[in-house]
Simulated assay, not measured.
Amino acid sequence: MTVLVALCSIAFASPSTSFARDSLGVFSDWGAFRDPAIPRCYAIAKAAPSNQQRDNDPFASVGTWPSSNVRGQLHLRLSRNLARGSSITLTIGSKKFTLTGSGGNAWAQNRSMDSAIVAAMRSASRMTVSANDTNRRRFSNSYDLDGAATAMDAATVGCARAG
C-alpha cells in the first residue's frame, strides 16, 4: 500500500489543470496511470531512498500521448537541479545513454533514444541516472526496474483504450 500512496502522490503532484487520473495498476515499485483530460498515460516510479541532499522529489516516467503520436517517452525528475552544461548519464545494465536536460529534468535526446532506453529497461533490473548539480557535486538517482515493463505495457494499453 505504501508504494501506491507514494506513486499517487507523484502522479497527482504533476502540474496540470486536471486532477482526474485513473490508476491502471501497481507493479512492484512502478505504477501506471491514465489522465483522460490530456489524454496521456504513463508508467512512473520513485527513485530509491537516499540520505543525500534533494532539491526535488525524483521520479522516472515513461509516457504516451496518443493525440501527439508519442509513445514510450522518458522523463526523469532529478533529485537535484543541474549545473549548466552538466553531462547527464543514464546507465541501464551495461548500456549508457547521454541524456539532455535542464533545471531538475532530463529526457532522451530523440525518439530513437527513447526506444532504445525503453528496450533496455525491459531487460535490466536497475537503472541509474547521474549528473552534476548546481554546485558541481556529482549525484545519482537509482531505480529498481522490477515491474517497469508491465507498468509501461499497462500505460500503453490504457491509452489505446482511450482512443
Rank of each mutant, 00 (worst) to 15 (best):
Lys96Trp: 10
Leu78Lys: 00
Ile92Trp: 06
Met121Val: 11
Ser67Ile: 07
Ser86Glu: 09
Thr98Trp: 03
Ser67Lys: 10
Gly72Leu: 06
Gly72Asp: 12
Asp114Gly: 07
Thr98Asp: 15
Pro66Gly: 13
Thr89Ala: 05
Arg84Thr: 13
Thr89Cys: 01
Lys95Glu: 15
Lys95Gln: 14
Thr89Asp: 00
Arg80Cys: 07
Ile88Trp: 07
Ser112Leu: 10
Arg122Phe: 08
Gly104Ala: 08
Phe97Asn: 06
Ser112Asn: 11
Ala119Met: 04
Ser67Trp: 14
Asp114Leu: 03
Ser112Arg: 03
Arg111Tyr: 05
Phe97Pro: 01
Arg80Thr: 00
Arg71Met: 04
Leu82Trp: 00
Ala106Phe: 05
Arg84Val: 14
Ile92Arg: 11
Asn69Gly: 15
Ala106Pro: 09
Ala124Phe: 05
Ser79Glu: 07
Lys95Tyr: 12
Ser123Arg: 13
Ser102Trp: 05
Arg71Ala: 04
Gly72Phe: 13
Ala120Asn: 04
Ala116Lys: 05
Asn110Tyr: 03
Val70Glu: 06
Asp114Pro: 01
Ile88Arg: 09
Leu74Lys: 00
Ser112Pro: 04
Gly103Val: 15
Leu74Ser: 05
Gly85Ile: 06
Ser94Arg: 12
Asn69Val: 03
Ser102Lys: 09
Leu76Ser: 01
Gly72Ile: 06
Thr98Lys: 15
Leu76Arg: 04
Leu90Gly: 07
Val70Asp: 00
Gln73Asp: 05
Asn110Ile: 02
Arg122Pro: 09
Asp114Tyr: 01
Arg84His: 15
Asn81Tyr: 12
Ser79His: 02
Val118Arg: 03
Trp107Pro: 08
Asp114Glu: 04
Leu82Tyr: 11
Trp107Glu: 03
Gly104Met: 11
Ala124Ile: 07
Ile117Pro: 01
Leu90Glu: 01
Gly103Pro: 12
Thr91Ala: 12
Ser123Pro: 00
Ser102His: 15
Ile88Asp: 05
Ser79Ala: 13
Leu82Ala: 09
Ala124Asn: 10
Met113Ser: 10
Ala116Trp: 11
Asn110Phe: 05
Arg71Thr: 04
Arg77Glu: 09
Gly101Ser: 12
Ala119Asp: 05
Val70Arg: 10
Arg77Gly: 04
Ala116Val: 00
Arg122Asp: 15
Gly93Gln: 12
Ser94Gln: 15
Leu74Val: 03
Arg71Val: 00
Arg71Glu: 06
Leu99Pro: 13
Met121Leu: 14
Ile117Ala: 01
Ala119Trp: 03
Trp107Ala: 14
Asn105Lys: 08
Arg84Gly: 10
Met113His: 10
Gly93Pro: 10
Asp114Trp: 00
Asn81Arg: 14
Val118His: 02
Gly101Glu: 13
Ala120Thr: 08
Ile92Cys: 14
Asp114Phe: 02
Ala106Arg: 09
Ala124Arg: 06
Leu99Gln: 06
Ser112Phe: 13
Ala108Leu: 12
Ser68Tyr: 02
Met121Arg: 07
Gly85Tyr: 03
Ser94Leu: 06
Gly103Glu: 14
Arg71Tyr: 06
Asn110Pro: 01
Arg80His: 02
Ile92Val: 15
Ser79Phe: 00
Ser87His: 06
Gly85Gln: 08
Arg122Cys: 14
Gly93Asp: 08
Arg111Asn: 11
